[in-house]
């Protein structure tokens, strides 16, 4: 009897120790990666990053890449936020239990995990090639094409969060509004959206955090630019692509600049994800 008890006890202790070890492994990697980025990034930090362009290589900075990333990220959000919010609203309000709704929801989840490089290929086919032939080569790779690719990354995040957030709004609120004779569109826009606003904004910020760090879909859409370009139809530089190129280079000065860029992106993305947690800490939403 006591032998069994001891065995069970030992097993239990072992499980607890291993579980604690697991959490330590997870935290070690987090701290390791963040620490390396922080140390290397700070030691390479320099105001030149913001004032000089990448054309000067080791003597240059990242200003055009930073500007390019900001422009493309904003355009991407401007494209995917309205579509995503409306599509999410549709799923929650008009198709919460229909077969069509279930299909869209499933396909949205697929899009959420779709390899981003394949989405980049898709945008190359539907935006870059047509715009090249339509404009006679004047517009080929462009910041706009990059934005469309990024929008495809952000879209499913917004759809999913909006869907889940709208479903959290109590039914009584809908019934109260409808019983006052308000049409559905007004009820949705003015009552439900207001109630779910913080959740929807969370979704948009999460989408921004996700697409800001994407490299793969930009490789054959935005192309890259060594000079400052602010026109969305020009080839445009971006921070992740600049980091990718500099990392592939053996020159240690370029590595240092890449680390500084990596620190910028990481800080931006982590700040966004922490902000979303503050904004919406009441109910956790899964965004796997």
């Amino acid at each position: 009897m006591s032998a069994i008890y001891t065995r069970r006890h030992i097993k239990n202790i072992a499980a607890k120790v291993l579980a604690t070890a697991a959490i330590i492994i997870g935290l070690v990697f987090l701290v390791w990666i963040l620490w390396i980025t922080l140390v290397n990034g700070i030691s390479a930090f320099n105001w030149r990053l913001f004032t000089k362009i990448t054309a000067y290589g080791p003597d240059g900075g990242l200003s055009n890449a930073i500007v390019g990333s900001l422009i493309m990220d904003l355009i991407a959000i401007a494209i995917c936020a309205p579509i995503g919010v409306l599509a999410g609203t549709y799923l929650a309000e008009c198709a919460s239990s229909s077969k069509f709704g279930a299909t869209v929801r499933f396909l949205n989840d697929i899009l959420l995990s779709a390899p981003s490089i394949v989405l980049g290929l898709f945008v190359y086919v539907i935006v870059v090639i047509p715009s090249t032939s339509l404009s006679g080569g004047a517009v080929s790779f462009s910041g706009f094409a990059g934005s469309v690719a990024l929008a495809l990354i952000g879209l499913p995040v917004i759809v999913r969060t909006t869907d889940e957030m709208m479903q959290l709004v109590p039914t009584t609120l809908r019934e109260a509004a409808l019983s006052l004779g308000i049409p559905q569109w007004k009820m949705t826009l003015q009552v439900l959206m207001r109630a779910a606003m913080s959740g929807i904004i969370t979704g948009i910020l999460l989408a921004l955090a996700r697409l800001a760090g994407e490299t793969a879909p930009l490789l054959f859409t935005a192309f890259g630019n060594n000079y400052m370009s602010v026109h969305p139809l020009d080839k445009m530089a971006s921070l992740p692509v600049a980091i990718y190129q500099y990392t592939n280079d053996p020159n240690p000065t370029l590595h240092a600049i890449a680390w500084a860029g990596a620190l910028l992106i990481t800080l931006f993305v982590l700040a966004l994800s922490l902000l979303t947690r503050l904004l919406f800490s009441r109910k956790k939403v899964s965004y796997d």
């Binding site: 997870g26 390791w32 390396i36 980025t37 994407e214 990392t247 990596a262 982590l270 966004l272």
Partner: peptide
């Protein structure tokens, strides 16, 4: 806090994983 920390691992852009992977 610990759950948040673990989930921050998901927020780190993959290019950062690449750099850390290659150099460190």
């Amino acid at each position: 806090p610990v759950a948040t920390a673990i989930e921050l691992l998901a927020a780190i852009p993959s290019i950062i994983y690449g750099m850390w992977g290659l150099f460190i």
